[in-house]
Design a protein around this nucleic acid. Structure first.
Length: 650
DNA sequence: GTAGGGTTAG
């Protein structure tokens, strides 16, 4: 950049266009040096432009240092600096700077244009106190008459959960617009007050699209899909947000088939899916567990040139592939987004590897993160601990648990404790696990006691197991798995009377077991089997005959049904019958009938796979020479040649 | 300058 020596006026007319041309903070610094040398530092419009460009190009510090040398800054300079501060990581500074502006400017005309951004910054950084101060100052002026300002206040209080304050601002407004109503509705929905939100929704003079969309989403997130559907159906005009809200409502309530069905309907109506719509359908597919439609979505993303870094597309794709058993494809996506990964992408990859039992690979990803100086967060460590847990990597798990606290200053949450306790307990370090649980600085929940209990069940430690079970049952009296684990523990050591007592306790308290359910994809259709019965009567006889045939063949190979974990206090023979009707066995039999030799059978189960089914499927994979992939509640099992990828560690 | 949908989590 060359500037020839000319008169001051000429300099100004030359400098301004040059400023406009600057693309980087370095160029701006060079030009600033020139401005100083040419005595233009007191030329208001030049300096205003310089400051606004510096702050716009990420040089907030430089902009501030220029600002501090101006004796009498004008409103534009304040505005441009505050605007940038609200978008940076320090909204508190923006509020302080705003206060400074109020005391140094006499004419505050136009300041209301700044307030929505400032209040948004407060809500983004949970700065309620600062927000209230701004509110207090606003009350002294006439600015509340500006709908944008009042709405921004409703939004601030709504987002921070102070719905009472939001409602008060709303009540005091002389003129409410759609945005005011919608902000209030969202506020009520955010604190879980669906019925109050509905009451306000009913009062809206003219309902718009946005308020209906908000209600659909709110109903979905509070488990009321039917009410969401009702709003959805009555809408004459729907946009992509309407459809996505309904789709994600189904996803949230673990109704992935309906989510997928609705997504297809959306396409058939000619609505073009955007990034959020694709992310929500990908999460439906991830929940369902079968990759076919996921591949279609991936292809759609590629052909429509939707960037993998728009929104959460990259991580949603990785998550979908990982949860559908295609960890290699997940890694492929991970590689493709190497240049613009965010922390969620790294976490998805680590969690994905964890659920496949690939502990060392997950740790390698973490090493890569360290090398690239990416700051891990608590979810990263939850993934790493899970990875160590599923891989049986005790030392590495202990190391991660210490590292997160000592090097990264992260405070472990109860889930982290649950994970490390599970890892220690499972690997037989029961005393260490108990020691950890006794020293948790936060309140232990049922999950950590269940981790101890399940370790005791594996290792047959009744004394510790019983007391852990009582604590777990006390904290989660409706959670059937606490009772079932305790009953399994008693069964393991042959205390059948106590097994009966636990069963009685469950009955008296009305605690119900979640029925096991397994799905298998055949000819493009998902077939679901429930424990004790098949969903589709048509296949009933065929499936039962096949299981019996498999059982007798396996018995020749030495299969002995493991009756120890059958909860029912019944005759041995009926126990065997009830084992046979486990959903994953039925799904497997159905798969064996309908799969041509050589192709793998893929099963998705809602609960943790039981010991008997695990050894049963191992044998099947050997005797029938086929590959069987099972995703259970926690992780993947790849059965092949008589053994499982989890190395019996699950 | 204001309102609605999306990822990773024992």
């Amino acid at each position: 950049m060359t500037i020839t020596a000319v008169s001051p006026l000429m300099l100004v007319t030359q400098t301004l266009p040059l400023l406009e041309k600057c693309k980087t903070i370095t160029e701006l610094r060079q030009l600033h040096a020139h401005i100083v040398k040419s005595n233009l530092v007191n030329h208001t419009s030049t300096i205003t432009k310089l400051i606004s460009l510096c702050s716009h190009h990420g040089g907030l510090d430089h902009a501030l240092s220029v600002f501090h040398r101006i004796p009498d800054p004008n409103p534009f300079i304040f505005f441009s600096l505050i605007k940038q501060m609200t978008e940076s990581s320090s909204p508190t500074e923006a509020v302080l700077f705003y206060a400074r502006m109020l005391s140094s400017l006499e004419n505050l005309n136009g300041v209301e244009f700044l307030l929505p951004a400032l209040l948004k910054a407060c809500s983004k950084s949970c700065a309620l106190e600062e927000g209230r101060q701004v509110h207090g100052q606003i009350l002294k002026t006439q600015m509340l008459f500006d709908p944008y300002v009042a709405n921004a206040l409703i939004r601030l209080y709504s987002e921070l959960g102070c719905i009472g304050l939001a409602h008060r601002v709303f009540d005091k407004m002389a003129q409410r617009d759609q945005v005011s109503w919608n902000s209030l509705i969202t506020g009520y929905l955010r604190v879980g007050e669906v019925e109050l939100a509905r009451a306000i929704f009913n009062e809206i003079p003219e309902r718009d699209l946005v308020s209906c969309n908000a209600m659909i989403d709110g109903y979905g997130k509070s488990g009321k899909c039917e009410l969401a559907e009702e709003v959805f159906r009555t809408m004459h005009h729907k946009d992509v947000v309407t459809w996505t809200s309904m789709v994600s409502g189904y996803v949230f309530n673990h109704r992935p088939k309906e989510a997928l069905g609705l997504f297809r309907e959306m396409l058939s109506q000619g609505i073009r899916p955007d990034a959020p719509a694709l992310v929500s359908v990908l999460s439906a597919i991830a929940d369902l567990g079968f990759v076919e439609e996921g591949k279609w979505v991936h292809a759609f993303i590629c052909t429509n040139k939707i960037r993998l870094n728009s929104g959460f597309i990259g991580s949603a794709l990785m998550d979908m592939y990982a949860k559908c058993g295609h960890i290699g494809n997940a890694y492929h996506v991970f590689e493709n987004i190497a240049h613009y990964r965010n922390i969620g992408d790294w976490n998805c990859m680590i969690s994905g590897l964890a659920m496949h039992g690939l502990g060392h690979e997950a740790l390698d990803i973490f090493l890569d993160m360290k090398m690239k100086e990416i700051e891990p967060d608590e979810i990263t460590f939850l993934g790493l601990l899970t990875a160590c847990n599923h891989g049986g990597l005790v030392d590495e798990g202990r190391y991660c648990f210490e590292l997160m606290q000592e090097k990264y200053g992260l405070v472990p949450k109860i889930q982290h404790y649950g994970c490390i306790i599970d890892l220690l307990g499972r690997a037989g370090h029961l005393e260490e696990a108990v020691d950890v649980i006794q020293n948790i600085p936060i309140e232990a929940d049922a999950i950590v006691w269940k981790a101890i209990l399940s370790a005791c069940t594996i290792h047959g430690n009744v004394a510790i197991g019983e007391s852990a079970a009582l604590k777990a049952i006390d904290l989660a009296p409706d959670d059937s798995s606490c009772y079932i684990l305790l009953s399994n523990l008693y069964a393991k050591v042959g205390r059948w009377d106590d097994v009966g007592n636990v069963r009685l306790m469950m009955k008296q308290r009305g605690v119900r077991k979640i029925p096991g359910s397994s799905s298998v994809l055949m000819n493009g259709k998902v077939h679901e089997f429930l424990v004790g019965k098949e969903m589709n009567v048509k296949y009933s006889v065929e499936v039962c005959t096949k299981i019996e045939e498999v059982v007798s063949r396996l018995k020749l190979e030495g299969y002995k049904p493991d009756l120890s974990q059958v909860l029912l206090d019944i005759e041995e023979e009926s126990k065997e019958d009830s084992l046979i009707l486990h959903s994953e066995k039925m799904a497997l039999a159905f798969g064996l009938i309908n799969t041509s030799k050589g192709s793998p059978i893929h099963i998705v189960k809602n609960l943790r796979i039981c010991c008997d089914c695990h050894s049963f499927i191992k044998l099947v994979s050997g005797v029938y020479n086929c590959r069987i992939v099972v995703r259970d509640q926690n992780r993947f099992h790849q059965f092949e040649n008589g053994s499982c990828s989890c190395k019996d560690f699950w």
